[in-house]
Design a protein around this nucleic acid. Structure first.
Lengths: 200, 200
DNA sequence: TGGTTACGAACGATTACTCAATCGTTAATA
DNA sequence: TATTAACGATTGAGTAATCGTTCGTAACCA
């Protein structure tokens, strides 16, 4: 006797609500600081019901770190490393990434925790690390593209790519206020300098 | 009957040992993840003795965040914003800061936690924030110095200064391995690009 | 009625913190 | 110098509260 489609949808929504609440609480109160009781109350769900969707606290944390990553990684990797005009592609990438990082405060705070305490969270850290390597290498190839066309200063590409991703997570860390998203716009031009553009 | 000088020295050492242990454990295991019992064992001190030096866990955490800040802030602020050759001063500053951030893994991981979860730790965050403002403004003045001398590209100085401090904490976050400190050297030159140096 | 989700009281483990007892050192006395 | 009284650092068992997890029961739907 299978469940009705409506019920399966409701359960899916309920699971997602728990997960979103968990992301927020894990991000703002840490792993041990976040209790199942708090999550249940904030998600308007009974205490025991959390365990029907997630085996235990550790698995819930893992899901909170890894599941949102898929949605975000698609946006971050959405640029053409073989662009005809790599300078323009870089500039649009920077603009897009900065806006993205400005918006995603909760989740990125959670990411910062996992990366900062990677010894405590080896499994979710591994997932983040894999994505980070992909990302950095793709950025590195776009930089080399620009260098071959004589539009960027010649220098090792990977350190620059690493500095770029470091810069993004660093800005997120340093800007506690999300509200004034105008502030973020002023970072775009100077951040672009990092790649060593050659102006004629 | 006052304590002898030797005893007061021993107590000072004991306090410092507890504090150093606390920095390490808070950094690697988080606030709630770090128990007084763990700290006492790791510092080779009895459980109850921790409370003779620190009123409670919260005060110990505050001390672990704020006390090392004084030693580090002196090094970070050690540059001349009115230097005759601001380009050279900037370059040396970058080199020094990157080396400093490469070495101080434990404490900076703790800083990342406080900044990332600033709502949970308002008092220590406030201290970090005050120092950060000082630092950024001093860097900003050095940048303006360079711009007035025609050595740096004209642009708003504060966003660049903010990007610089963001970059530093971001590199620390992205490089989990301290051992290969050679790696850090390769960041110096590209990071310097951020300030928009004008080469003739 | 049969089967699955939702619920929350109960359980053992662990937490921060207290406190009465103990230990080590100091300084005055013999 | 040897003895001892006294003071404060040190100790860890004890306390109340809270944690993650389990599980029997209730509620819901096909």
């Amino acid at each position: 006797m299978p469940l009705s489609e409506e019920q399966r949808q409701n359960m899916k929504k309920r699971r997602q609500k728990i997960l979103n609440t968990a992301v927020y609480l894990f991000a703002t109160e840490g792993y041990e600081g976040t209790t199942i009781k708090k999550i249940a109350e904030a998600a308007d769900v009974s205490f025991g019901n959390v365990f029907t969707y997630f085996k235990d606290k550790e698995q819930l944390f893992y899901a909170a770190v890894v599941e949102p990553l898929e949605a975000i990684s698609d946006q971050i990797l959405d640029f053409n490393e073989n662009a005809e005009d790599p300078l323009l592609e870089l500039q649009e990438m920077v603009k897009k990434d900065i806006q993205l990082f400005a918006g995603e405060q909760n989740y990125l705070t959670l990411v910062v925790q996992v990366v900062g305490q990677y010894q405590r969270f080896p499994e979710p850290f591994d997932q983040l690390n894999q994505f980070h390597d992909h990302w950095r290498e793709k950025v590195g190839r776009l930089i080399e593209n620009g260098q071959h066309k004589g539009l960027l200063k010649k220098q090792a590409s990977m350190p620059v790519a690493t500095l770029y991703t470091s810069l993004l997570i660093g800005i997120r860390l340093n800007n506690t206020d999300t509200r004034y998203s105008d502030m973020w716009a002023q970072y775009i031009t100077p951040a672009f300098q990092l790649f060593g553009p050659i102006h004629e």
